[in-house]
Design a protein around this nucleic acid. Structure first.
Lengths: 342, 342
DNA sequence: CTGTTAGCGCATTCAA
DNA sequence: TTGAATGCGCTAACAG
């Protein structure tokens, strides 16, 4: 293999010292024009590029930040990443992406490896398994070691760090209220198990909206989807109840789109017989039939905010500063699945 | 800020040398049990972790692979990444993801930064703008500098490196043949401009299938979508032709799903009046109405293969070895949009 | 104008 | 059983 070109090699080539080369390549006026030029020409010819590892080691800064997400094959997370990456790029930062695959163990592993000096800070959305386990010592540890951390979307209340979340409560409220306003009164929710905080929070918004309109909260209208068994089957059961709902609020896009399909299958008209609304930042919604009304999350904006916060913290590691939680608003994208023509 | 704990600090703490600490933490028998234990206890207490930068610098290996993709908000690319990441993880490698955003300039920038020693190898799918520009000197440069490169999906013929592609020709052929076999004979294609090689190759498969069945190739059935203007409008025009097609092969999922919507809008029955087939590894297809038949790409498998190849090359940089192109097969996922009940 | 030295954090060889 | 010295690639303070 061709070994990479270094200052040392250039120095040897011209029989000068390493620092002479270093200065020459930096166009230092300390070096004679003649030497400078020939060194620069040689370096250019061999595509000399200063080794980042060496620089980082020296500067104690890597200009890269780590991002840990549960899954990359989720439109929302992909959006967040694109937001982070955009901002990072503007500031000359790199992004190192790790996937926890919703596993606690992989999350811990990722945190550990990122904390070995390769990144200046970490942006993370917590794995479901971690939320279920309710064990956050790995976060506390890194924070106490002085590594800046920003959490987004799936955040941990009790950990002290900057956070960026969507307005899950408001979004859940908005979605439910929209269904009520459109005249639906038997509203079910397709949500996650309670340990998934975003699902839980969206449901709180749902409940609040029902209460506000004096609608009863019915336990058989609250479906906590178990992803490890047949999702469609669980939704189907809801539709087959004796007293089925005429409106469904799904806390994510897949549940909503699946509900649409199952409603079709059962011969229900959407939205006349049953209205459906989702919660997402995804693409599927526009292509379902009828197209799906959703509460829009702004993944990209969240990503950008995450980067702002982490950068801020990286740049002010010495000065003490207050952590806070940034809430990114959601809004309603009304499409056909809830729009009854009157 | 709390500064990170290092061997040096531990050494000072116990008034021993750095190398003693280093050895103790490695459980070297050279060090007395007593010293070893107290050093290890101290290190554990302060979460000592060897600095990766220092290690990498020393070992001249980073155990991280750079990946450059045009867009992360594409299900296909996300899948590839998840494949790469999975394999990487198994081998103790990290993945650094960069986005070119389809821009030539950003691609070059990314390549340059990755080539400064932070990664052992690069996996890349070429930006559209680069394909359009037809300028690949940045690849040649890195390769001549001895940096292993693997290209996938959007690859460059003339660059000598390992490649992983989907069977685009075969997939295009398969899709078109399927439509023909189902009884459709006026088949249009929604494709990309010719400089996007995957689109072009899929179209070649389309043409081959038509030829095989003695069907005429009609220029007004070949729509090269310009993404910078209104996509829907361009597809609509196709449907409004005097002699409209009764089958459409779209080289990606979005075009196909959009075509479905527009066909609805025009009152066409799918697949009776017009059959539609896509090419993808995405999620939308299962949720359109009717659900979309597609040629399935195996993004994850491609990602895994990419990592295998790059790892192989990283581990054999000295030994000369042959580059080759790995073709990952595609297959038909028949759904409702092409299935005429007879 | 050019070179020496020191140091970033670590592992390793060799000497004590 | 411990420590000093060296080097990975680079910069910067300082000396000549």
């Amino acid at each position: 293999m061709k070994t990479k070109i270094t200052l040392k090699k250039i120095a040897k080539e011209f029989d000068v010292s390493i620092s002479t080369v270093s200065k020459a390549l930096k166009d230092s006026h300390e070096i004679s024009e003649e030497v400078r030029e020939k060194i620069k020409a040689f370096a250019a010819y061999y595509h000399y590029k200063p080794n980042s590892l060496a620089l980082n080691l020296r500067n104690q800064k890597t200009k890269t930040i780590g991002v840990i997400i549960p899954e990359i094959v989720h439109h929302f997370f992909a959006k967040v990443i694109s937001g982070i990456e955009k901002k990072a790029n503007e500031q000359g930062y790199n992004v190192m992406i790790c996937l926890s695959n919703e596993s606690y163990e992989k999350e811990v592993l990722n945190m550990e490896m990122l904390s070995k000096g390769i990144v200046d800070g970490i942006i993370i959305s917590v794995a479901k398994e971690t939320e279920a386990k309710d064990d956050y010592t790995h976060f506390e540890e890194l924070i106490s070691d002085g590594i800046p951390i920003v959490m987004f979307d799936r955040v941990v209340e009790k950990i002290k760090c900057n956070k960026v979340i969507a307005d899950d409560f408001g979004g859940g409220f908005l979605a439910t209220k929209h269904l009520i306003d459109e005249g639906f009164d038997k509203i079910a929710i397709l949500t996650t198990p309670d340990y998934v905080t975003v699902g839980k929070t969206r449901m709180e918004g749902y409940i609040k909206a029902l209460e506000n309109h004096q609608l009863k909260i019915q336990n058989d209208y609250i479906i906590r989807i178990d992803e490890y068994s047949d999702v469609a089957r669980q939704i189907e059961k809801l539709l087959q109840q004796e007293n089925p709902p005429n409106g469904i609020f799904a806390v994510n896009e897949i549940y909503a789109a699946t509900a649409i399909q199952l409603a079709h299958k059962k011969g229900l008209k959407i939205p006349e017989d049953i209205a459906i609304i989702g919660f997402t930042d995804g693409l599927i919604s526009s292509f379902t039939y009828p197209s799906l009304t959703t509460v829009a999350q702004h993944g990209r904006a969240m990503g950008e905010k995450c980067f702002d916060l982490i950068l801020n913290e990286v740049n002010n590691q010495d000065t003490q500063y207050q952590h806070h939680t940034e809430v990114i608003g959601t809004d309603l994208k009304v499409r056909e699945s809830t729009k009854v023509l009157k």
